[in-house]
Design a binder for these strands. Structure first.
Lengths: 215, 215
DNA sequence: GCCGCTATTGGACCTTGGGCCAACAAAGGC
DNA sequence: GCCTTTGTTGGCCCAAGGTCCAATAGCGGC
């Protein structure tokens, strides 16, 4: 059903829960990996994810709680959507989990189809964020290939400034701006200012430096 | 403290709760309006909000529930951030509320400072969304002022197409495209293609029509 | 029928952007 | 000292955009 093999990480201190959830996941045609604690998950899952995945996490666990795990995941390269499950969760925890971006928060006992739907949603989200990340990192790589001056010029270009104006701002001659402009378009792999503005928007590249310079 | 007078709508079927929450809100320097039911709120709050506001809503009420109220609010011109309070809320309700965009979900009895913090956050959000809405509606007004042809041309412009290419796509002469292009920039109140791309991005104007035309 | 809006086109002219070739200078690595 | 990178500038030419002028044609409304 999925276009590529997706993995569900199951983090629960109760081994039997891990086992039954893993079975459920595998019956749905997905891969499953189980972890007995948040620490174990963080220790073993350090590689950046290259394939869609999500985590089904128990709220209450000895050691690091599910909430804490989620918080750390956000900063890790292995960030993936989290689905919480809990037998005795409270509303404040639920609120915190959801505010931190959890897909949902299920209370035991829950309907298995409910969990599978949540997993589907989580994987969908992760796929979307992965393609977005890929696009963004590809663009950032191009930006890194620019020299400082080129970045500076680019910041002005995407404001719609004329070469003449940019030249005045940078105290250089218009001809030089033209050269930088050409290099920017070439290195950023776009063929028009319109496209350049778009790709810059994707990575939130705003002419902040240019503004600082003005001030 | 707030730059402009902000209002907190309090929706609770328990009159004494309404009264005490209203007092709390007013002591914090904000306006308060109370409603005894979701229906009453929806009946009385029909005008589009012109000033920052948020709603503090009880989950359980006779008639329309808080969740239902929130759902209707999303489609209404009086949409504002919602803070839920409940004495006996459950986790599924909390999850649904948060997924629908609730700021938070507080359980009675709650700390008053907690509520005030939530209100602050909700008002902050609402202010941000109001300025975003204003920007967007101002831009949409300009788009509505464009003729069909101009919109068509604009769709091509923001892809970075040359006048020559646009002319070929629309089976007209390059000169005509220039005229439309000038009108578009004028009516959209921008002075460059870069700015045009930006304002179109704000209102999610994508050259979809152009793509359809090609197909 | 006249008026106004829209779309269309033409011409002339100027400004701007972009490509191509060449050159120089400062900085840093070998 | 030589080489590469980076930033800078020059000239030349062409393509593209922008701005004036003016004109024609269809279409709906008064």
């Amino acid at each position: 059903m999925s276009p590529e093999p997706a993995t569900v990480f199951i983090v629960d201190d109760d081994f039997s829960v891990c086992r039954s959830l893993a079975r459920l996941v595998r019956q749905a045609g997905l891969r499953a990996e189980t972890f007995g604690s948040a620490e174990e998950f963080l220790r073993l899952q350090t590689d950046p994810l290259t394939r869609p995945a999500c985590a089904v996490v128990d709220l209450h666990m000895p050691g690091l709680s599910g909430i804490e795990l989620q918080k750390r995941l956000c900063d890790s390269p292995a960030a993936c959507p989290v689905i919480f499950i809990s037998g005795n969760g409270d509303i404040p925890s639920t609120v915190q989990a959801m505010r931190q971006g959890a897909v949902t928060f299920l209370t035991k006992p829950f309907d298995t189809t409910e969990l599978l739907h949540a997993i589907e949603e989580a994987l969908r989200k992760h796929r979307a964020s992965m393609v977005a990340d890929h696009r963004a990192s590809a663009i950032l790589a191009r930006v890194n290939d620019l020299t400082e001056r080129e970045i500076e010029v680019m910041a002005w270009i995407i404001t719609g400034a004329l070469n003449k104006q940019i030249a005045a701002e940078l105290n250089i001659v218009e001809k030089t701006v033209k050269v930088h402009r050409a290099r920017v378009l070439e290195k950023m792999q776009v063929s028009s200012v319109a496209e350049l503005v778009r790709v810059c928007a994707v990575v939130n590249f705003a002419p902040a430096k240019a503004a600082e310079r003005k001030a």
